[in-house]
């Protein structure tokens, strides 16, 4: 399931719903991404006031669905969910949630890891950081590309 939304969400409710969706599920693995309290510049990072997530709605939906189908074809996943927020978020707020449910744990762990790595490099979202002195578009991290490469 894919949800792209402005609103916050309840992690425990999402995990409960996923876990109870199929009697054969024996494992649920999840990841939550949060807004940090410092901006992403390596040098001279300063306190972050907010980030604003922009996206390309039609393409976001399409890419996330594709990523989810890819994960299901590769691992034995009974059910999965990706929630990604957009709009203005403050430090501590949740940005993204990925959870995968499977019979045994390894499929759930691996699929969850894969979904996050692909989402980072393929889903059309952009973060604008706002700190005290400036607004700054977050730059791509080479380590994200490397992380996605290992699944090819």
């Amino acid at each position: 399931m894919i949800k792209v939304q402005k609103e916050d969400f309840d992690i425990s409710k999402e995990i409960e719903a996923l876990a109870s969706s199929d009697g054969s599920i024996g494992a649920v693995s999840s990841f939550v991404g949060l807004v940090r309290d410092q901006d992403s510049r390596e040098v001279s990072a300063e306190a972050l006031k907010s980030i604003t997530l922009e996206h390309y709605p039609a393409m976001t939906e399409k890419k996330l669905l594709e990523i989810e189908i890819k994960a299901k074809s590769r691992w034995n996943i009974k059910s999965s969910i990706i929630i990604h927020r957009y709009g203005r978020l403050e430090p501590g707020e949740k940005i993204v949630f990925v959870a995968c449910a499977s019979k045994h744990r390894q499929d759930a762990f691996d699929a969850c890891n894969f979904l996050m790595d692909w989402l980072k490099t393929e889903a059309p979202f952009w973060k604008l950081e706002e700190s005290q002195s400036r607004k700054n578009w977050v730059k791509k991290r080479e380590s994200d590309d490397k992380a996605a490469e290992r699944w090819k």
Binding site: G33, L53, H55, Y56, M59, H84, I95, V96, M116, L119, K120, T121, E122, A123, P124, F125, W126, K127, W137, V138, K139, K140
Partner: peptide
């Protein structure tokens, strides 16, 4: 057609 910088979601 859409043009954009490298994506930075997640």
């Amino acid at each position: 057609v859409a043009f954009f910088p490298p994506v930075t979601g997640g």
